[in-house]
Nucleic acid binder design. Structure first.
Ligand code: ZN
Length: 285
DNA sequence: CCTGCCGGGTA
DNA sequence: TACCCGGCAGG
């Protein structure tokens, strides 16, 4: 059901114009040979030639945002900039950072402090494995101040991702400034496919080992893969439903029938219909 | 590949 | 009617 809906939405997004055009071109409703080639060709062309047609349209804008410090309509970027340049925000009343480790509720007033606390007490025990994961501490503390309240009011549970605030002593501002907009653009994509928000929400807790930029990039690739993967079935299903919507939907039953239950070597035990290669009447769906 | 089964065949 | 099989869609 949901998959169908998503498929419809995706199809209308990706190859709406082409599908309709072909639908008109392929006026005879019983053609399986001619329209198939053209349709498949067009869909393949769309999915391969323009993989970023719908989701990628966000990226250029995001890049420009990251390069320029223009005040966009995003509150997240503003907050990021504020933290990046360490502006003395006048409304910062009391900012504190709380450790999110399962049975630790330590609160510190500085980000450096909380990071050091997490690194030394929870993560790799001091300096033994300093290189195990670059900024893993980011996932284990949350920021408690006015901004977080504003953010949570906007409808998202207080996930530790909300403060992706890079630490001031962090030695890599360019990668951060590039990773932040990608997050926002991804969220736009997810708002369209809201079923994927789940994966986004729980990844900071379940897979905290990945550093931020890597995690984001990997997930974006997976999203793209899913999108690509769906394209084929999409175009096929759309074509099927467009060519033959008159008959009832043929949903192949997934139940095991006599052939699979008894095996070909025990064909005598099959029901007669199965023996005659007809619709099974013993294991009805 | 395999499975389920429709359409069409034979006696 | 009973029985069989080619071929197809879908996994
Ligand atoms: Zn059967």
């Amino acid at each position: 059901m949901d998959e169908l809906m998503a498929a419809m939405v995706l199809s209308t997004l990706s190859c709406s114009g082409h599908s309709s055009a072909h639908q008109e071109a392929a006026a005879p409703p019983m053609d399986t040979g001619s329209s198939e080639h053209s349709d498949d060709g067009s869909c393949g062309y769309w999915s391969i030639g323009h993989p970023h047609s719908s989701p990628g349209s966000f990226s250029p804008k995001a890049d420009s945002d990251s390069d320029q410090v223009t005040p966009p309509d995003e509150g997240l970027v503003m907050e990021l900039n504020e933290v990046l340049f360490d502006e003395p925000a006048p409304r910062r009343l009391k900012a504190s950072y709380r450790c999110l480790w399962p049975s630790c509720a330590k609160e510190l007033t500085t980000m450096v402090g909380i990071k050091r606390h997490i690194r030394t007490t929870h993560l790799c025990r001091g300096g033994e494995h300093e290189r195990c994961s670059p900024s893993e501490e980011d996932f284990y503390y949350t920021e408690v101040n006015q901004w977080e309240q504003a953010l949570t009011q906007h409808g998202r549970s207080p996930s530790p991702l909300s403060p992706p605030s890079p630490p001031p002593p962090s030695p890599s501002p360019p990668t951060l400034s590039r990773s932040a907009p990608s997050i926002s653009s991804l969220w736009q994509v997810q708002s369209e496919h809201s079923y994927q928000v789940l994966t986004n929400v729980d990844y900071p807790k379940c897979v905290p080992v990945l550093p931020q930029s890597v995690a984001v990039r990997v997930r974006s690739v997976s999203v793209g893969e899913h999108w690509l993967q769906h394209q084929g079935s999409l175009c096929r299903s759309v074509r099927a439903s467009a060519t033959a919507p008159l008959h009832a939907e043929k949903i192949r039953s997934e139940a095991k029938k006599c052939r699979k239950v008894y095996g070909i070597e025990h064909r005598e035990q099959w029901c007669t219909a199965c023996r005659w290669k007809k619709a099974c009447q013993r294991f009805l769906d």
